[in-house]
Design a binder for these strands. Sequence first.
DNA 1: GCCTGACATAGGATCGACCTATGCTTTCTG
DNA 2: CAGAAAGCATAGGTCGATCCTATGTCAGGC
Lengths: 308, 308
Amino acid sequence: MLSVHQLTCFLAAYEQGSLTRAAEELGYAQPSVSEQIRTLEKSLGVQLFRRVGRGVTPTTVADTLRPYAERVLASIDEAERAVRSVRSLETGTIRFGMFGTARLYAGADLVADVLERYPGVRVELVGQNSTDVQEELRRGRLEAAMIAVAAASSEGMTITPVARDELVYISADPERVASPVTAARLSQASLVMPETTWRANDSTRIVLRQMLHETGRNPMTRIEVEDVETAVELVGMGLADSVVPRGVVDQLLPRLAPDAGWVSLRPRQHDILAIVHRADAILSPAAQLMIELATHRIQEICEPVRPR
Amino acid sequence: MLSVHQLTCFLAAYEQGSLTRAAEELGYAQPSVSEQIRTLEKSLGVQLFRRVGRGVTPTTVADTLRPYAERVLASIDEAERAVRSVRSLETGTIRFGMFGTARLYAGADLVADVLERYPGVRVELVGQNSTDVQEELRRGRLEAAMIAVAAASSEGMTITPVARDELVYISADPERVASPVTAARLSQASLVMPETTWRANDSTRIVLRQMLHETGRNPMTRIEVEDVETAVELVGMGLADSVVPRGVVDQLLPRLAPDAGWVSLRPRQHDILAIVHRADAILSPAAQLMIELATHRIQEICEPVRPR
DNA sequence: GCCTGACATAGGATCGACCTATGCTTTCTG
DNA sequence: CAGAAAGCATAGGTCGATCCTATGTCAGGC
């Protein structure tokens, strides 16, 4: 019989490509992990890793097993969370992923909403970068999240669009925001982009790359900074221009770059804000609450999107 | 940590409404099930059953847990089934290395052969260049491959020759293919060689270098192109001559260089096509299948070599 | 009040998980 | 090319979890 333990060790070994590192990650000695993998292989009757000098390499069977193993662990995790959250809306912790612009202008209000209804709970908004959030979702450590996503859906995830947010060009130079910005003009601009936006697999990045690609040019020289706030400040100082969601403009421009203006791109482009969770997940009451509240908040600020 | 075992016992008890009957169903003694439930309750910190005289009755928490527990067991089951179906080649991915001329004239047919017998599988032919293939073999990321090899065997690899393919001289100039080409004539020729052939550690390269060496000259000026197809086309345009395996001639010459002719070298030289795998490897059914099919295909096209 | 069905507890046997120590092979390095 | 380093396998021992049988306890039925 497969055990959770074996699958945990298997996944760690798969991801680390090494039994030793897997053991470190799990806090065990190396032979223990080795033994778990061996019994797992034996009980399945297949070889999962090839031992070859440095480290281990997964076989194709291991590739096949991996998503199933992840799913088992995720469902175990869901089970635990479900039980805890039965009384947990009184006392537990609610975790919710929220990355990108969504976090920026709905985070605080969302926490307030939850606390108003359930004064006893602890709220945790996870979301330094979207790779983390997606990884936590995939691993089942996070039930659901609201993130800005590209149109394409990730494997095994259910993506429910709730709102869209226009991407606009901001600049301290009035001339450059006098008329909609085309791809050609964009390719010549000197932009500052928050690193999170560039690295993230979200609409902003994809849209901009596509626009640049159409001009037949390489990506322009650009400044990368850590967060949107800094980017907006730099724009306010006239050091560069940027492309940000409309919500950010309303939220930050008056405060951080009062002299800057904004204008649409041509054609208009949008970030899609969506709720994302594992396709096979049963959502806990807490997660459903967060989704409901977050959707409500976002749709107050951005243009709602009705799912088909 | 939740264990599968605990959940199994929980579900049996939930459905039977009795620990004794649950134990019977599972083939355990009653105290064993009792203990499992108790540890489960302890680790979750909640009461799952109320002990009321006759039998046990689930609490609301147990009602909540049940669908999650069922899901966990179902996903475990799916994981096992997935692996078993891979084992029987019903699904999963088969990876096989195939470099050089072998890939060129057996690749597509080989994939077709596999898919005909096992419609569910995904086939992956690895083989952009032979260095990659050998590296992947050595690292254990590939189980087996068919490549054109030099007579010398690589360390730690088992090499099983299956066919040989004559190396012939091709040219658009009828005079130059009127009689067998000797080393001396070869050294004066202006050749175009596909880069893959030159860089690979295969017979072609070794044979030609040896022939050139005998004339006491350095390698002749030559054109290097990316693939065999391009080389043959250049020959067809009369820009250079080349040395390619006989199989390539049959396959490509009529299509890409209809006016070119070919002639043997003197003495005749051959590429050896062989199955290569790690000497210590136990080959999976999938790999054995690929080897069998690939060998069959190749021997239809080239002259079979019987291993001693 | 006694019997019966059903869960809890106790104590011992067995199995599995984990550890440390060590050996072997591959890979890196001087 | 030899020695060091890294990484997996094996061996042997400890400990805890699991499972068993036997027995205790409690509620419901006659």
